[in-house]
Amino acid sequence: MLKVRWMTFVAVCAALLTANTVLARDEAALIVLGQAVFLEQSKGNCIACHAISDPQAQLAGNQGPPIFNMKLRYPDKRLLRAQVWDATRNNPLTLMPPFGKHWILSEHEIDAVVEYIYQY
């Protein structure tokens, strides 16, 4: 009996551990995608207007503010996502393209870029 319980415990632990690494791996993959969305001209091209302190982000433009202190400035991540999805909600005349509303990026790519900038 004791032995069975012990084995269940081990099995559950193992399952949880793998689940965790899978989650971590998913998140890492999301951030890799998010970086590509940020940097590549055919995707978000966010770098055209925003500096970010990622060493890979060279020759950034400065039409928009630098991406900085995101966690502090957007404690609610959903508001950050909303800014990326449709910047015209906050400022109708904004230069920033409405990435979700105009189908410039997929919902998944938006999740990814939000995850990526949330680190900075």
Binding site: A60, G61, Q63, L95, P97, P98, H102, W103, I104
Partner: peptide, 21 residues
């Protein structure tokens, strides 16, 4: 699709970098 006006870049955006331009 990018929702940009000429004025976005050439009035508000004049002399501000958009990437290297």
């Amino acid at each position: 699709q990018l929702n940009l006006s000429c004025a976005n870049c050439h009035l508000e955006g004049s002399n501000i970098f958009i990437r290297a331009d």
